[in-house]
Amino acid sequence: MNRLVDMQDALSQATTLEEFQTFVENLRDVYDLEHLVYHSVNSTGGQYAALTYKPDWVERYIEQDYARIDPVVQGCYRQFQPIEWKTLDWSAKASRAFLGEAGEAGLGNQGFSVPIRGPSGQFALVSVNHKCNDEMWASFTSERAADLLLISHYLNEKALQIEGNPHRGPTRSLSPREKDTLTLLATGANRANIAETLKISESTLRVYIESARFKLGAANTTHAVAMALTHGLIVV
């Protein structure tokens, strides 16, 4: 439950790209995944990556310019919905050979990527990779997709912040549903009642609470409500 909050604490402390890299490695361990990759390209073509692949695979990938044929890169970079690797087109001979080589380099057979459009034409891709059967992977992604979306956007914000992106706003505003959720929590309503009032499930409600807490940098739900009240983000 509080893994997201723990991660947020760790992420908020990162001030250098090295610390960001360490965070990405820890995140991979927390989720017990084979690999985790953050890759950013800004509007002038400048690139930055934090990833857990073996250095010789990264070197090989760059040397061979595999981005040209990598279905994940080709499939994700122009889009913006999360993508399950299985739905990409791996049928070309070059793609299959690439897949074989990636497997030898320690990549798992399953993957999921979150493309992000950032400010001023910046673009990022967060990918998770794992070795397991389809059933286990489906259960992981259905359970963790919301977390992954959230964490992907925070990774991007943090990377932009470390790089000193001047276009970043000072604070993130709460979304309408996050405001509704915190407002109702502030009135003392319990989660079941709130979910009913907002006509959403309790699991969806949890996502809103977690993301509001994340945005506010709050330690727990009560702290998030208190912060939202003091900052005038919600009115009870």
Partner: peptide, 11 residues
């Protein structure tokens, strides 16, 4: 379009 038989996030 998206090759997803189920929804990404259980709502």
């Amino acid at each position: 379009a998206f090759g997803l038989e189920r929804t990404m996030i259980a709502a």
